[in-house]
Design a protein around this nucleic acid. Structure first.
Lengths: 144, 144
DNA sequence: TGACATAGTACGCGTCACAAACTATATTGT
DNA sequence: ACAATATAGTTTGTGACGCGTACTATGTCA
């Protein structure tokens, strides 16, 4: 027989599934669109971060939650395609600043437009009030 | 000057960012917990699918949206660890059914418990009413 | 100046994903 | 019945990605 506690647990479990499945859904969209422009998900995330910032290799590692040695290859591949460029710091010659090139910014514009379009097809299942409500709640979850 | 249209576009863009960032947040949790049990995100997803189903290699490829050649290695690595097993079909000897072993089910229980715990820390930022509301909206987005 | 710390790279390893070629087993048309 | 075709899965080769370790170059501090 199911009491209130069981019902609660049940609800929490599907809450978990909901968030997890939603994340897979969104990642699937990112993956598909990225593939069209030969961008991996990590690269999409990279450009999302570098879009309006100029960071060092180490800062990128922290933002992305990766080891610094992983950043070397990531940036090198993007640099080879002319999407970002490395610039040595004047004040500290150990430090390298990474900057998105004009070509990179152009690609970001196109791809983020595509992502926006596809994400909208997901959120089309909600009406305006629901969408606003969802957005407010999602914002709360993201904070910090 | 900002009219209603601009406001709308603005809202849609942050809606996109909200969903995308939320997905990265959840994937980060999955990644961290998976690492503790030497499970990649794709393996977590695999076990989420195989948890209460027994599928063929080809069906797995379709569920995961991967090429069938990618499944071979994925299942082989899991099989090597004793988490799943391959079983030839009697009716069609080309077909291989994949089944989670008892050890696999045990791991699934532990890991999904951990995931549930961590996801709950995310949703702790919402009160009960908000959480219920968010869940209902997320369910709508996932459908199909 | 010499010891230590920090930023970044190089290298080797394993996972993951793809495409193309291949094997083995069905299915279909005649 | 049997040749042509289709299907399920594996193999192989390639590349991206992520880690840990070792290394180089530069900065800091005692």
């Amino acid at each position: 027989m199911m009491n209130d506690n069981d019902a609660n647990v049940q609800e929490e479990i599907s809450m978990m599934d909901g968030l997890v499945q939603l994340s897979f859904l969104v990642q699937g969209v990112l993956n598909r669109i990225g593939a069209e422009y030969e961008l991996s998900i990590i690269q999409i995330r990279l450009f999302g971060i570098l879009r309006d910032r100029e960071l060092t290799m180490l800062q990128l590692a922290q933002y992305l939650g990766l080891d610094k040695s992983s950043i070397t290859g990531l940036i090198s591949r993007a640099e080879r395609r002319g999407l970002v460029e490395r610039r040595s710091s004047r004040s500290d010659r150990r430090v390298i600043h990474v900057k998105v090139t004009p070509e990179g910014h152009q690609l970001i514009r196109v791809v983020s437009g595509e992502i926006e379009r596809h994400v909208r097809t997901i959120t089309d299942k909600l009406n305006d009030a629901e969408r606003a409500s969802f957005m407010a709640l999602a914002s709360k979850l993201i904070r910090d």
